[in-house]
Design a protein around this nucleic acid. Sequence first.
DNA 1: CAGGATCCACTCTGATACTG
DNA 2: CAGTATCAGAGTGGATCCTG
Lengths: 128, 128
Amino acid sequence: MAHPIIQANGTASDRCEEGRDLVRDVLERIGDKWSVVVICQLGDTTRRFNELRRMSAPITQRMLSATLRGLERDGLVTRTVHDTTPPRVDYALTSRGLSLLKVVRDLAGWAEDNASGILSSRTAFDAR
Amino acid sequence: MAHPIIQANGTASDRCEEGRDLVRDVLERIGDKWSVVVICQLGDTTRRFNELRRMSAPITQRMLSATLRGLERDGLVTRTVHDTTPPRVDYALTSRGLSLLKVVRDLAGWAEDNASGILSSRTAFDAR
DNA sequence: CAGGATCCACTCTGATACTG
DNA sequence: CAGTATCAGAGTGGATCCTG
């Protein structure tokens, strides 16, 4: 067996096969253009709409709104409306959202670790 | 601090902020419709084109071809052509691809663990 | 067997303008 | 402040046909 690291987890090898639609579902959520950005910007603190908008620039109002609604729908984010003037709405990650944040950060870590290698691979490939 | 787990890794909190374009780049690769499926089907073994096609059904020829080329471009997959008749081409994950497989399996694990919760959240949200 | 080329339908996103 | 509505453009994937 060439790469024992992959075999370490007994059931993990099946997890890709089995729940393909599931995985696709999740990836369609976090694989869109802004979900990961918003999740990371939220982190473990509460943020307001325009605050997130600034932090996630250059996201548009429309996309931030849509992204937050999607995350809320999946139970990853809570939306709290304070009935004041001017209106104030707070967003925060749920515990499920926080657990996803962890996974996403692992992914981000992998991305950073492999970014330069990937970029040079691309350059080499395109030069053929 | 409500969720110390998030704070565990000193630099990890920055990894989302810092390399946003990086992360997006990676997510555009694995976030497309088929990359994750193909990566999982490859696992740590070598596969031929039509073999992958069957395993990844209902992927089309066009998309399998495009997906594999993308993965090869990023140095995640090797493509080995055997000059025989009929032609035979073998695909396998590189070590970089295998390291991504690990991360992807974590993601798949998260997806499985949270699938039912997410689905019921969606139902509840849509019923409002 | 392992693809490439073409055409089409759909989705996702951005820009802009407007509202409670 | 925190959104919604509408429109147009780009990208992405599927179906089909063809080839060394």
